[in-house]
Amino acid sequence: MSIEVQYRNRAKELLSNGEVKLVVGYTGGTTPERRRPVFISSAEQVDRLVLDDLCIANLSGYLVTESLLSDEKSVAVFLRPEGIRSINILAAENQLNPDQIVIFGFEPAGNTIKALDGTNALEFSEFVVSLSENPSVSDSDPVIEKLEKMSAQERFSFWQDEFSKCIKCYACRQACPMCYCRRCIVDCNQPQWINTSPHTLGNFEWNIIRAFHLAGRCVECGNCDRACPVNIPLRLINRRMAVEARESFDHFAGLSMTQEPVLASFKKDDSETFIL
């Protein structure tokens, strides 16, 4: 039985017996290669669910929008490994109760996908630890290598070029499961802390502040990078921050539901190389 059929059956069962009120998954999109998020709330609709290697988006962000979980009912969600890590962070940051989340886990396997065992985030603990031991963070990305070899000045102009394209549509923020703030700092306008204009200064302020806010919290699902309509390679910034958090603080974002935030906690043996 394909994983798609298996998960449709499971969704049908959970919806029929009332264990979940909703299944957040994927369905076909405008073109054959597109997949779009879908919200299934009745057993009759489960055949709309599609699951294959083209299902890439991290859907965990939907769990924390518009008070979805405030009625304490459970919701099922299709998640890749990065999405499971997102659930850990959202739970660690008290944004959701993990007991309300039923996970339909899957991971890429060559040109196809395979199911992950488990339904509650806790059951994936060992799996997530194994991810942290073999981080998929590949340091062989040619653009990253190119960037690492640049002088600070060259790197600055690379990002200046990239950020000059930013149109401040905030698709990166809206697509990100970690950008759940009720009111983002750029939307605080009494006073206006951050320039909202998409000029050089405003674009640097926005993208750098977002990078800092995601340091040690980003699971590199790539939602922001794919959402950006002007193709700013946002993954490169987040990749760098993940490497930094790992090398400096041995921190792997989303390792567990009790993980402390890397920039808001300290250990006695933290490296202090930044103190002159």
Binding site: P37, V38, F39, G61, C169, Y170, A171, Q174, A175
Partner: peptide, 9 residues
């Protein structure tokens, strides 16, 4: 619009 994420793209 249930899946709209509210960006301005």
């Amino acid at each position: 619009s249930v899946r709209c994420i509210g960006c301005a793209s």
